[in-house]
Design a protein around this nucleic acid. Sequence first.
RNA 1: CGGGGCGUAGCUCAGCUUGGCUAGAGCGCUGCGUUCGGGACGCAGAGGUCGAAGGUUCAAAUCCUUUCGCCCCGACCA
Length: 578
Amino acid sequence: MRWTQTFIPTMKETPEGAEIPSHVLMLRAGFINQVMAGAYTYLPLGLRALKKAERIVREEMDRAGAVELLMPALTPLSLWERSGRREAFGNVLIQFQVRRQNREVQMALGPTHEEVITDLVAHHISSYRQLPITLYQVQNKYRNEERPRFGVLRTSEFLMKDAYSFDTSLDGLNTSYQRMYDAYCRIFERSGLSYIAVEAESGPIGGDASHEFMVLAENGEDIVVTCADCGYAANQERADTGDRAAQPPDDDAAKLTKVDTPGARTIEEVCRLLKCQPRQMIKTLIYLVDDRPTAVLIRGDHEANEAKLRRALGATSVELAPPETIEKVTRAPVGFAGPVGLELPIWADHDVAGIGDAVVGGNEADKHLTAARLSRDFQVENFADLRHAGEGDPCPRCSGNLALRRAIEVGHVFKLGTKYTDVLDAKFLDDQEQLHSIIMGCYGIGVNRILAGLVETSHDDAGIIWPLSLAPYEILLAPLKISDDEVRQTAERLHDQLQNAGVDVLLDDRDVRPGVKFKDADLIGIPLRVVIGQRGLAQGQLEIKWRTENEAGTIPLEGAAETLVSMLEQAKCSGDSS
RNA sequence: CGGGGCGUAGCUCAGCUUGGCUAGAGCGCUGCGUUCGGGACGCAGAGGUCGAAGGUUCAAAUCCUUUCGCCCCGACCA
């Protein structure tokens, strides 16, 4: 491809509003263009990179025995009502109606396709002889994100590979799941991403029913918890914490005392006023658990984990109570809730038990209590692990300590069980003529996020550094002075030879100064740059430079195409992008 | 949905506090010339409903009201 014949609008300055590297660089390098918040055009370079990622995904899905199909993005709203997810998705589901002759047809743009595929399988699969099967597609998904952000990292329309496995037994599901898990590892390795697989929120099946594939990156939206000693890794939403030695309560029994804390509603304010540490305080959070007010006690320096709370209480919905409710049940303004004398079910995190004499809210305006003691001054109905794992917490698997890292979720594998097959009536007859629900798994990859994750973790001050596997072009030819006949003809001959050899080659045939070509070359990040200049040609040489290296080298002009092809071959074999 | 920031040329921004002449700069773009191995220089140009609507005023990019859009933090995210 010739630069002057394609469309690569690079930018010297960072557009207003772009902050994180992947967004800034993909905009500046002419890969994407924003159409509105959460919707981007993929320009020619961006599309080529996206197609490369897509191809890797397809190859590994096919290799794992999954079969590709294509479902419509347009879906009947009734399907979402049947599964109950019209309500579960709420505003995220993009719904609309259109008129057809004399009736209104209600539709939704698919945010994911469990319902559509399960309905398909329900109609066409009825025997164990047709199972197992794993089906997949690569398709745009639509979610009305409350807050799209970070360039292509979180958008309302995005390209997703979604696969669904259908099995007759849990063992079968485990096999299908493992096959997808392994395929995911190969996909992310081939994409040149450094990723980790972490345990994720697993829903009804429990156990190791869900893993997320994470790219560690400063600007990631998720937080993962890792243990350097044993390799334990989990999403913070789900991460367990190890046992912590409980502090024996101080036996010099201090008496429960009411103190004035005017206007001190937050942990910090109370600590400043009473000169105590957050870890000596108990936060009393009032939650609506399936619409029932419930008090949850968390140590002052910890944070409540609503997913754990939901699981521990076996609830379907958990949300912080509105101020009116808090004021009603505590008979105090928000900020002064405490467990002493509170007439609500009280749950507490394990670590609350080790505080000893604690500072708690007084259930009265501008009052707190000091030296509040568990069992003497207040009772707790149940203890559970209800808090987020924190930096330095004990590992649940070994004696190590946990570390927190930010990460980008690029893939998610999930054992669904019969959640959808039950409600959508997807059943099979086994060899004993017994009817069972088909057992399902689902497996998603955000294809755009492969690119964003790569750029986020592979760039320098000058621009993007693409691996060969995802680069829009493998080789960039930079003839420094296009008006020189020898330079131009050499470049064009080389371009044609490489193209005929099946190499993705881009020829920068613009009549611009060398500096412009070098800057743009670094910015768009093509892995191998070949400079064709009068100086080198006089010595029968071409300058070559890998984007990852600081120093340039030379190769003889004679047989240059063959040399370059074998260099690429070698790099593909030795690199992690095989 | 709560908090904060920003909308002036294709891009980055100045001008607004304290209303006033033909609305500016750099980059980019067009033409000519000189240049040509890390974003060159000179000359001449094109390009604007100052996000939109309403109001105050002799006069609004500038002051007031409303509204739309974009970005960030938080909440939310099968």
